[in-house]
Write a protein that binds this DNA or RNA. Sequence first.
DNA 1: CATGAATGAGTTTTCATTCAT
DNA 2: GATGAATGAAAACTCATTCAT
Lengths: 209, 209, 209, 209
Amino acid sequence: MKKNSKEAIVKAAISLFNSNGYSGTSMRDIATLSKVNSATIAYHFENKLGLLEYCITYFFEQYISKMEEHFALVDYSSKEYLKRVAADLLHYQCENIELTSFVYREMSMDSQVVREVMSTYSLKEKYYFQKIFEKGFERKEFRPHSIPYLIIQFKGLLMMPFINAHYLREVLFIFPNERFFEQKYLKEINGWIENTLTLKSLEKKEAIL
Amino acid sequence: MKKNSKEAIVKAAISLFNSNGYSGTSMRDIATLSKVNSATIAYHFENKLGLLEYCITYFFEQYISKMEEHFALVDYSSKEYLKRVAADLLHYQCENIELTSFVYREMSMDSQVVREVMSTYSLKEKYYFQKIFEKGFERKEFRPHSIPYLIIQFKGLLMMPFINAHYLREVLFIFPNERFFEQKYLKEINGWIENTLTLKSLEKKEAIL
Amino acid sequence: MKKNSKEAIVKAAISLFNSNGYSGTSMRDIATLSKVNSATIAYHFENKLGLLEYCITYFFEQYISKMEEHFALVDYSSKEYLKRVAADLLHYQCENIELTSFVYREMSMDSQVVREVMSTYSLKEKYYFQKIFEKGFERKEFRPHSIPYLIIQFKGLLMMPFINAHYLREVLFIFPNERFFEQKYLKEINGWIENTLTLKSLEKKEAIL
Amino acid sequence: MKKNSKEAIVKAAISLFNSNGYSGTSMRDIATLSKVNSATIAYHFENKLGLLEYCITYFFEQYISKMEEHFALVDYSSKEYLKRVAADLLHYQCENIELTSFVYREMSMDSQVVREVMSTYSLKEKYYFQKIFEKGFERKEFRPHSIPYLIIQFKGLLMMPFINAHYLREVLFIFPNERFFEQKYLKEINGWIENTLTLKSLEKKEAIL
DNA sequence: CATGAATGAGTTTTCATTCAT
DNA sequence: GATGAATGAAAACTCATTCAT
């Protein structure tokens, strides 16, 4: 009878998982919002966990592809590549705020299943970061620093607005869904890359000596 | 009959809320872990939401007190006060990883009740930040910048390790509960304060001219 | 799997509500008696109150239809119409003693929901009574009297045996479920109509003068 | 600390039992309304059923005493005695609407305990009614009729306004708690005694013949 | 005389899932 | 490809009661 019921279910699920969390969302809620019988969800995704896995996989597939897309750039300039990655990921996240927001939240929970799905992507992501930073150190583009702590800072910048979307909106009056935010926030990230990460020419000379 | 049952309940609740989220934790789980009858939880906290509110209030009460404690310092030096606040909050959060972690996560959910409790504290916190930065700008301690975006960056730094505790541990092999982490991460934050936030003497001269 | 589970639930509910009252009956009791899983009750009636509403609506729907059925008669003779209504209602109530009994009892409680359902029917019923009595007064069939107080008396006669079913059985040894009772009690009601309500021919003449 | 806590409990219980029924009222409700700790109720009445028994006994003790008080009158005139009883009982019930209302309702339930308490009083009451009517028949005061059916009618008249207090108020706009109602309704009952019950002088002569 | 703390048993309700259609 | 009916299990919550104080 209904077309695209699968799509409707995923859309509803993302919205509700974002609002109420995975555990806080019932199959009935999703069925109601997507105007589908709850048995239909089981038909498409086997069970609730299947639907969650589908959403998370969907998110990370695209996330990782953004990192892979211009990886060749790393051989030319780590800084340029990192800026490109930042822009692409930020854009993707802004266009998928709800999905981004709920995936980042769900990642922090003790759910074995979710973390298993993620671990592959996390390791891939870590590999790319390591390459970026290592090459950046070699080429004296980046100021030497502990890689894990750089990852924390960089990922922190990228995640913050989506984890705290409510806080941004209600306390700081910053709206991550607006076009303007993406532009402005990208400048902040680039600022971090330029000032905190990049070795200044003066320092560079010193470092060489 | 039993003593300190209220305390035991809160302790168990924090641990379970952190592991499985609020919705993912059942009263029975809490009752079992705290070795209390589940009716006792209702007796002390009215209902599940009451227990959540209690935990969140407890967290923010102490959080805000760390900001208020040395507020007088702001008249002397914004930078010193901010460093002091960073150290105190980081320490408090490291000593209460589970509570911190789950409160930050729950804040991002659409629960009206939780957000109502928080809003008071968020506004207070925002007030302190505003004072710090405004005075810092006046005194040319800080490089001029949009306050809300500075708040995002600073809070982002403070929250990151606790929101992504799993990621730190399993992917980056960084353990936020260890003494060493607190010291090292404080240096990172201070680095941000010194490099990103602080106006360099050279710039300062230029700014004066 | 099972058929007619809805019907079985209603039957069980009526019996148990009558015996133990609405509050005194648990969903489990109903589920057990109707040999249905208690979730099935929720499926059909949403919740316990929904089941109560269904029963009450069911009762009044039929009750009112008895009053409406021969309403045309009122243009010919109020007395004949009233006797007809009395006979039909008494018969209906005798055939549905448990339902009648518990609905009359539950009506007297402060449950907002129940009273909302009833109010529509009560107003309809009042309208019919008013018509009966007004026309009866006009035609000098009935001795003039306060209509509300006549309604109390008539409804009192109709309700008494069902509200006090236990008392009738155990103290007076009158059994409202037996065929004989219906016949005998109808005579009592008709007696009231003839003697208390009807204007005697002697009085009628006086009234005309 | 508190004085009259027992009295306060009974008052609260009567009000709540009337509004929500015995089963629909919780000890906590009573404790809250009477501003007493719920353990205090247990202290005074042992348990919830004890409190119910106390209320019912209290009602019937006084009810029966109204019938006994002027019993000597029956030797002089059944009609006068019945009128006196009607007046006294109606007055008592009007002054104790809530108690009357809830006792009559609770009587109709299958609670073994309640019915045991009542049975003694019911039998006493029946004995008085029997005497009244028998003597009335003997003396040709009353038109011969089945005693049980007369009891139904008389008790029906007395109970109706209290069982259907809501209906009277909301549909008929008759307020059983007002002084006026008692007077007016007593006339209705006396009307029944005079017209339905009493043998008219004309009939009397015929009966003698 | 009265109560705060605590509880075991029970309540209604919700949930994800199943299965015949 | 989709669903209405049904359910077992578990959830949150309520209740009357107990007992040390």
